Amino acid sequence: HAATELTPEQAAALKPYDRIVITGRFNAIGDAVSAVSRRADEEGAASFYVVDTSEFGNSGNWRVVADVYKA
């Protein structure tokens, strides 16, 4: 099962156990969220919340930071 994305309210009520950072070329924010979901799932997380997204220069590469939560 894939890790689910939390709302800001849900994330605020929970304590993350880790923070992950992924970088890559994403065509849309949805693609980045899917990549975070896969990584969170690999780490055994039940859910995640994207904290920050930023573009690296003009290369089209993105850096996505997310907190991950157990259950």
Rank of each mutant, 00 (worst) to 15 (best):
E5K: 08
E5S: 09
E43R: 11
S47G: 10
G57I: 06
V64K: 00
A13Y: 12
D41G: 15
H1K: 09
Y69V: 02
G30Q: 14
K70T: 08
A13S: 13
K15S: 09
V21F: 07
R38K: 13
T53L: 15
A46S: 12
V50N: 00
G57A: 08
A12T: 08
A13P: 06
G24K: 01
A12C: 11
K70Q: 08
D31Y: 04
A71K: 11
V68K: 02
R39V: 10
D18M: 15
W62M: 09
V64D: 02
R39A: 11
A11F: 02
V64S: 00
V36Q: 02
N27T: 12
A71T: 12
S54M: 14
A35F: 06
R19C: 05
W62L: 06
D67L: 15
Y69M: 00
S54F: 14
L6P: 03
V36Y: 00
T7N: 07
R25I: 11
G44Y: 04
G30S: 14
F26G: 02
D31S: 07
V65G: 02
D52N: 11
E55T: 11
R38W: 06
D31W: 12
P16L: 02
D52P: 02
R39F: 09
A13D: 09
T23W: 11
F26V: 01
V65P: 00
N58D: 14
E9Q: 10
T23L: 11
A28Y: 09
A45R: 01
A66W: 04
K15N: 07
A28E: 10
K15A: 08
V50A: 00
A71E: 13
F26I: 02
V64G: 00
R63T: 12
R39L: 12
F56S: 08
F56N: 08
A71G: 11
A35G: 03
A35I: 07
S47M: 13
K70F: 12
S47A: 14
E55L: 10
G57F: 07
G57S: 09
I29K: 11
Y69F: 11
A45P: 02
T7R: 07
H1R: 11
S34I: 14
A66E: 01
D52A: 13
E5I: 07
I29Y: 14
G60A: 06
E9N: 08
Q10G: 05
Y49R: 06
A12W: 07
S59G: 11
I22T: 01
S34C: 14
S34T: 11
S59D: 14
D67W: 12
A3M: 06
A66I: 13
E9S: 10
N58Y: 09
G60F: 04
K15H: 09
A66R: 00
R25L: 08
L14V: 06
T4L: 13
V21Q: 05
S47H: 15
R25K: 12
V33N: 04
A45K: 01
A40F: 02
H1V: 08
I22E: 00
Y49M: 05
G57R: 06
L6C: 05
T4A: 09
G57V: 06
S54R: 13
V65Q: 02
R63S: 07
F26N: 00
A32W: 10
A28S: 15
G60Q: 06
V64P: 00
D31A: 07
F56C: 11
S59W: 06
S37Y: 04
I29M: 12
V51A: 03
P8R: 14
